[in-house]
Simulated assay, not measured.
Amino acid sequence: MASCSCSSFSCTRGPSVLLVCLLATAAFMVANAGNFNQDIDITWGDGRAKILNDGQLLTLTLDKASGSGFQSKNEYLFGKIDMQLKLVSGNSAGTVTAYYLSSQGTNHDEIDFEFLGNLTGEPYILHTNVFSQGKGNREQQFHLWFDPTADFHTYSILWNPQRIIFSVDGRPIREFKNSESIGVPYPKSQAMRIYSSLWNADDWATRGGLVKTDWTHAPFTATYQNFNADACVWSSGASSCSSQSTTSASANNAAWLSQELDSTDLERMKWVQNNYMIYNYCMDIKRFPQGLPSECAIASIS
């Protein structure tokens, strides 16, 4: 096997060797079993965000004065991130609950789940997007096949060198592949934190801003539990994915680093996209009169 150092994700022998290095070093893994006191910093909201039940539960609240938000203590460079959410119930029109990974700066990378509220009885819109080197405009939107306000559901982002997979309750809904071979930037070199916020976006969130937030229903609350990150932690310019940590390596523990969708996964994703997708940028010819983005040619739905 060719040798390389994975400490900074820069292998001189190329990306295939990098992946071998990563797969061989499963001891770098971080498994955070959902204690918000240990894993999360509340960043804004003036007391509207609360960590409860000895770190097992977190709530974000929005009222007319302000929303609230939090971020992960750690930065990550590749990982599988799970969070269970119960969204704002009742009339949530105008509100947005955002849960995403992001780096910093003008040319940032970002992987988004955003939940756009609606009038009582109308479905939430689950909005997804991927930014690489500051470029986004890769939206796919879905309705859900359940009421996301009635109970907790698991929303997952799997991010490895080859692909990003968005999943809901273990069912893949979207895949964004690494298309660098055709000139499409892919988020692979900027560490990202997990962020979440509950905020008022009634200028655009519900029917393009036609339906405004009804503050008589405030405060609005979203609830979180069972945060889990199996991931490479980035700290002080280096990754915990270190080739020095090989004594307890296990290919099974590092499965997400090379995970892809098998035929069953693809059928399950196709079911969601056929029945619940309401917008796909790769089908929006009017939006891209000069031609659809390059990655659409190899997307699962194009």
Rank of each mutant, 00 (worst) to 15 (best):
V168N: 07
T247N: 09
H153C: 08
E122T: 12
N253S: 11
L62R: 06
F131E: 02
A231C: 00
S245Q: 05
A222S: 14
V184P: 00
Q140M: 12
G14R: 03
S92T: 06
P15S: 08
Y281S: 08
K86P: 15
L62I: 07
T154D: 05
G183V: 00
N252V: 03
V130N: 03
A49F: 13
P289E: 11
N35H: 06
T95Y: 04
S240F: 06
T223F: 15
R171H: 11
Q273Y: 14
G170F: 01
K86Y: 13
S132E: 01
Q290V: 03
L60H: 13
P289Q: 08
W44P: 08
D82N: 03
N280T: 11
A65Y: 10
E180Q: 12
D214V: 10
A150G: 06
S102M: 11
E260P: 01
S66E: 12
D203L: 08
D46Y: 14
N274S: 11
Y99Q: 00
S156W: 00
R163N: 13
R174D: 13
S302P: 11
Q225E: 11
K80F: 01
Q290A: 12
I81S: 00
L85E: 13
A299K: 10
T61A: 14
E114M: 09
L119T: 13
K177Q: 14
T213M: 09
A33N: 09
G105W: 15
M283E: 15
S189C: 02
I165S: 04
D202G: 02
D109N: 07
N74W: 08
Q290Y: 07
S239L: 12
G94F: 02
R268L: 02
N129A: 01
C11S: 01
L62K: 06
S16D: 15
L52C: 05
T120R: 14
T95A: 10
N91T: 08
F78V: 00
T12M: 05
P219E: 07
S103L: 07
C282A: 11
I125S: 07
H143C: 04
V168I: 10
I173Q: 03
F9N: 09
F70W: 09
R163H: 05
D109Y: 11
N280G: 10
Q84H: 06
V20L: 12
N275I: 04
V184W: 00
L58G: 03
K50F: 14
A297K: 08
D203Y: 15
A255V: 00
K86E: 07
S10H: 07
G14A: 03
T120W: 14
N280P: 14
G136D: 06
C282W: 06
G134M: 01
T59E: 15
Q104I: 03
A255N: 06
G121H: 09
S132Q: 02
G117D: 13
Y279S: 12
P15G: 02
A93L: 10
S239C: 08
V168F: 12
K64P: 00
Y281E: 10
A254W: 00
S68I: 08
G34D: 01
N118F: 08
S189V: 01
G90N: 11
I51N: 14
L62S: 10
E139H: 05
R268T: 04
K286T: 14
E175A: 14
K64F: 13
G170N: 04
N253T: 13
S243N: 13
I51W: 15
D109I: 03
G121T: 06
G134Y: 02
T154A: 03
N280D: 15
N107Q: 02
